[in-house]
Amino acid sequence: MSHFNKLNSSHWVLIAALLAAGYACFLLIEPYLNPIILAFIMSLLFAPLHNKISDRLPNSPNSAAILSCMALTFIIAIPLFFVFIAIVQQGATFSKDAYHWVIDGGIQTLFQHPFVAKVLSFINKYLPFDAIDPAEVTQKVAQLASQIGTRIVGMSAQIVGDVTNVLMNFFLMLFVLFFLLRDQDKIISAFRHVLPLSRSQEDRLLDEIEQVSKSAVLGSFLTAIAQGIAGGFAMWLAGFPGLFWGTMMGFASFIPVVGTALIWVPATIYLLLTNQWEWAIFLTAWGVLVVGSIDNIVRPLLMQGNSGMNTLLIFFSLLGGIQLYGLIGLIYGPIIFALTLVLFNMYETEFKSFLDQQDKN
């Protein structure tokens, strides 16, 4: 604290100028912040592999970093590319089958089902809604189905645009990752030097960033992958396109509260309406016992790590992260919460005597 008391006006001007320049630099990189942060997290996840490569190439840091980036591409990017192609193919087949089902009178057949007829009669008799006319609903669904070709073309153009954007961000992430892996010791040393914290506090802060970054990725994305695989396998057994709906389950797992039930509950209802009650019971049991247990057990276990965050904090960090930042918020939210807890613990330690004295007064 004595160092800050000695600061004169020129020091404060320098600090203010540095803050202004830092903010201007932040505005410059803000559009590319997500790939940069992902590169940082990937550098933590791939550090063990990179260290092994560096040990074999001690005099070639550039080559070691390039090989690590290539390993990331072959381990993650290329398999995802082929899975994406298969998903698009299954999705297109499903859309075409659904279109023909509607055109060939599938909606009319559905309304003629005894169970649907009873539910519809109950709704029209007791609930305060306008009466639902099956013929009107069938007509509107048929009109929507007739426009499905135009919608698919529009969605295809959007997917192409999204894929282009994803590829650009991926290559930008690789570019940043190369320098993070090559110069990681220099970057960490510089970071330690400019932080006005003790070495033990810096160690704690850096360890927490590494731990929470890893647990956020493992907790969110590995849980989504596990639920997608488990759910897709059950959907495939029940006669649905497994890869497509498994992927949809993986994405749905990021949605708080509802989760994968957004996919398997409608599928179960469809199976019941088509008199496949054995598969409906199987899919319900699998969704609750297997897929649900992955979310309720594996995610909190992976995400707690050493951050001291309980399940409630994890839930709100994920919920708030998605609300503020979108999908990437599944990583940002837990990191922000965990770093706040670490800084709060540092505050308690630094001002312990003062806080104890205040408790006595």
Rank of each mutant, 00 (worst) to 15 (best):
F4P: 09
I328W: 07
A17Y: 06
T274F: 01
L341R: 15
A142P: 00
V141F: 13
L324W: 11
F251Y: 13
I314N: 07
A92H: 15
Y332K: 12
A280R: 02
D295E: 15
V88K: 14
F40R: 05
I103H: 14
N34G: 04
N345I: 11
E30V: 04
D203P: 01
V288H: 01
E348S: 06
N5T: 13
E208G: 02
I229Y: 05
F244G: 08
F175Y: 07
Q357W: 11
F111G: 11
V258C: 13
M346A: 00
V217R: 02
L324I: 07
M173K: 00
S307F: 04
Q184F: 09
R192M: 04
L49K: 10
I36S: 10
L80P: 04
N345W: 14
I132N: 05
I76N: 03
P334W: 00
L167W: 10
P334L: 01
L7S: 05
A234L: 07
S215K: 06
V88H: 13
L339K: 01
F178L: 14
L177N: 05
A216I: 02
T73S: 08
S2G: 14
W12Q: 14
F46T: 12
D203M: 06
Q323S: 13
I336K: 09
L197T: 02
V176L: 07
V116H: 03
L222Q: 06
V342L: 05
N361K: 07
I123E: 14
I263R: 03
P196L: 03
I107D: 02
F244S: 10
G250L: 12
I159S: 03
L181H: 03
Q357T: 12
F84I: 12
N275H: 03
L177C: 06
D359L: 12
L28A: 15
S198K: 03
A230Q: 00
W277E: 13
D295M: 11
G22M: 01
F4Y: 15
I294N: 01
Y99G: 09
V153D: 03
M155L: 15
L197P: 00
L301C: 07
V141R: 07
G292T: 04
F84E: 09
L330T: 07
L302M: 10
L272D: 11
E30F: 05
L38G: 13
Q158D: 15
V288S: 02
I107Y: 04
T274W: 05
N310L: 09
